[in-house]
Design a protein around this nucleic acid. Structure first.
Lengths: 148, 148
DNA sequence: CATAACTAGGACTAGTTTAGTCCAAGTTAG
DNA sequence: CTAACTTGGACTAAACTAGTCCTAGTTATG
């Protein structure tokens, strides 16, 4: 449950790959480096460009590079770029369902959404590539204010 | 992104409906009460029974009822019953990917998973049906230890 | 004990979404 | 001017999801 789409998964893989070396990478290089089909990587990079997470350099010797410092790019942004807004249930947007008045459940979902969104915003790319996992153990999470 | 499946959404709707009145409800009654197609509700209730979130009473005048106190049923359990284990990325289980050794990303995902799982476990059915949203505002979340 | 009102379980279908491919056009280095 | 790139979008195939339907089993009630 709570599946992250494969695209979002690939998206973070691509981003972490690029975070490890801030130079310009061609789509085919990234593809080879990650073992993901070239057209797919290409597609993902285009999406990331559109969301300003990645800058593109056209022409020969061109390619893609991170638009910002890895520490300034959150996981939430990446997922959002690939899958659209982080929202866990349908009735979160403008769509007003008929039984809205009686639906006390709704605002609770929104609270849950906030929690998750918050958690994902607190993890950035720089942390994802740190060789020794720092985010993993719970005490570290707590000290960083992600968890209770 | 981070979409909750419609089934999981329905699942929580059904559960909150039943939490409001702990008596036995037939599938058709729940269907009418929620405005969800009867076969679908029926299917959902069966899934919930299998996961021991709901008890069934067979025969005439039979139906379904919550297996436990609403306060003892977390949202995480419900979502899990409908969609399977809460996991945000593919390589969370037993499947070992080839580049596991170099994959420092993986453990970070697991940390994120923990955060989300944790958040969903802390919200229970009883809270979902409370008329005035208590979980919604962030300060309340903090005081309850869900958020920083 | 017969019937009506239920649940149990699973097979099945239609629809939507997702992943992935491909092609034509525009840009730039050399 | 050519080779190596990106851009954008159209397109296809496969997977998944939601939803339907059918048969069998269980129990209350008259």
């Amino acid at each position: 449950m709570l599946r992250l789409s494969k695209m979002a998964d690939y998206g973070t893989q691509v981003m972490t790959y690029m975070a490890r070396d801030l130079a310009v990478h061609s789509a085919s290089e990234v593809s080879a480096g990650l073992g993901i089909a070239a057209p797919t990587v290409s597609k993902i990079l285009k999406m990331l460009v559109r969301k300003n997470l990645v800058d593109s350099v056209m022409g020969a010797k061109g390619g893609y590079m991170l638009a910002r410092d890895p520490a300034a790019i959150s996981i939430a942004e990446i997922i959002d770029a690939m899958d659209g807004p982080i929202s866990i249930t349908e009735c979160s947007g403008t769509t007003t369902c008929e039984r809205e008045s009686t639906c006390s459940t709704r605002s609770n979902w929104q609270g849950i959404n906030h929690i998750i969104q918050n958690a994902l915003e607190k993890v950035n790319l720089a942390e994802m590539i740190s060789p020794k996992p720092q985010v993993m153990d719970m005490s570290a999470l707590r000290s960083r204010g992600i968890l209770i």
